[in-house]
Write a protein that binds this DNA or RNA. Structure first.
Length: 446
DNA sequence: TCTGCTGGCACCTTTGAAGGGA
DNA sequence: ATCCCTTCAAAGGTGCCAGCAG
């Protein structure tokens, strides 16, 4: 049986620069992903984004919305989002700034949010921005709704995955490409800690319009403000703000101000600041990520259920982890959905993609998959891996879930400043070992 | 006492059904 | 009969806040 470590060796070199002919030529396409509303995200990030998590699940604001290009119009893709810890710490809000409060708690079950439109042709994903509005975050580890489970007072960032697959269960043979945007990192909280974040949320979230100053709750806010300074300057060291500004700045300006991020000091401590990146490289920050796909890559699947590759085994082989920036778009990895039972799904599968005009496939019913996974979870050594059907009456959110690692190792990525990240601008071929620390499918099998 | 979490609340937007007119 | 537009109520998303638990 080939282990994931073996697989990694397949990626150890840089992707071939030449463009081979043949079917693999498809894989040579450069998929690009842009974050929508980057200015808004940066405005939040400069202060220190906080996301409320509740037992019943809370949407993100700003919510994740991306533009995608470079897909094959007639090929089908699946879009996924998951959350990975920024580091191995728990934080507390103390004296208007975030401080480390100890080691992170063991990670809750790792879940992946499947975009409800998945699978859909590349043309569908590219014709308009893709919104993950309905993604919800929860702190309920027993959540049955498929929301993404996070720990309060911990920092996370979303990862976006694009998988070329005709259906959910051909994912195992597919290449997926991962994108992250540094300014989307956030601290999960059960109640807002930083009043500046509260104000930003109220100002920008239409659902919170009732709390705006001009609203009927003006007095309410004034009362609150009189009790404590609402906008204490410098919620973190080094940040001197005049006023929380609406996102009107140029991208470049926002990038320059990144050093004022609440996490800036931390980054400076953890990361070598000597970066060859100049202003040009900085400007590449977050505007676009180019991901060349190596055609030499061989698909891989697990042959043995219940023997999923463990994160620790992968970690051991990662010698290049430290000091690497992680402005990821990662080298492609393999989505490892076991193939057993997949035959059952043939009836549900949408046929092969065809170029030319075609109706967008309707939502696929995956509720049967949920039953399947439950049935399989009884196997010895097999950890249940739940798939929540996007359109199931019970599970309205499309999420793949499964038990995560006992604890993610402290990820080195996103501890680098953007300058460093921009240097790499998305090319991380050869760091698959580290990548495998954050497996898309929680290295669990049905 | 402090810190973090929970549930109820008021206020708001979104969504979809119903009805009327062209 | 069909389509389009408007209205309206229900559903659901917000932050606030008092109270609770560890």
């Amino acid at each position: 049986m080939q282990s994931i470590r073996d697989l990694k060796s397949n990626f150890s070199g840089p992707p071939p620069s030449s463009t081979p002919a043949g079917p693999d030529a498809y894989l040579q396409s450069n998929i690009r992903m842009n974050l929508e509303d980057p200015e808004l995200w940066k405005t939040f990030h400069e202060i220190g984004t906080e996301m409320i998590i509740t037992k019943s699940g809370r949407r993100m604001f700003p919510h994740c919305k991306v533009n995608i290009s470079g897909l094959i119009p007639c090929a089908k893709y699946i879009l996924l989002v998951d959350m990975v810890p920024e580091d191995g710490f728990r934080y507390k809000w103390n004296k208007e700034k975030w401080e480390v409060a100890g080691k992170a708690e063991p990670q809750p079950p790792c879940r992946t949010y499947l975009h409800p439109d998945s699978p859909a042709p590349g043309s569908h994903w590219m014709k308009q921005s893709v919104s993950f509005l309905k993604l919800k975050l929860t702190n309920n580890t027993l959540d049955q709704h498929g929301h993404i489970i996070l720990h309060s007072m911990h920092r996370y960032h979303p990862r976006f995955h694009i998988v070329q697959a005709d259906d959910l269960f051909s994912v195992r043979w597919s290449v997926f490409q991962t994108f992250t945007f540094p300014e989307t990192s956030f601290t999960a909280v059960t109640a807002y800690q930083n009043t500046k974040i509260t104000k930003l949320k109220i100002d920008h979230n239409p659902f919170a319009k009732g709390f705006r100053d001009e609203g009927t709750n003006k007095k309410r806010l004034e009362d609150r403000a009189s009790g404590s300074p609402v906008f204490c300057p410098s919620s973190f060291e080094g940040f001197e703000e005049e006023e929380v500004e609406l996102p009107k700045k140029k991208v470049g300006d926002a990038i320059k101000e990144e050093r004022y991020s609440p996490w800036g000091a931390e980054r400076e401590n953890n990361v070598a600041t000597s970066s060859p990146a100049g202003a040009d490289a900085r400007e590449m920050y977050n505007t676009e990520q180019l991901v060349p796909t190596p055609a030499s890559y061989q698909p891989y699947k697990f042959h043995e259920y219940g023997k999923s590759p463990s994160p620790s085994s992968s970690v051991g082989s990662s010698a290049s982890g430290s000091g690497r920036s992680s402005f990821e778009s990662r080298a492609p990895d393999v989505a490892t959905v076991p193939d057993h039972e997949s035959s059952k799904l043939r009836a549900h599968e949408i046929g092969p993609s065809h170029c030319g005009p075609q109706a967008l496939p309707g939502p696929q019913e995956y509720s049967g998959v949920l039953n399947m996974s439950v049935a399989q979870s009884g196997k010895p050594g097999v950890i249940g891996h739940h798939i929540y059907g996007p359109y199931s009456s019970e599970q309205h959110l499309g999420q793949w879930s499964g038990p995560g690692p006992a604890q993610y190792p402290p990820p080195p990525h996103l501890t680098a400043d953007y300058t460093t990240q921009a240097v790499h601008h998305g090319y991380h071929h050869g760091n698959v070992a580290e990548w495998s620390q954050y497996p898309l499918f929680s290295y669990s099998c049905w």
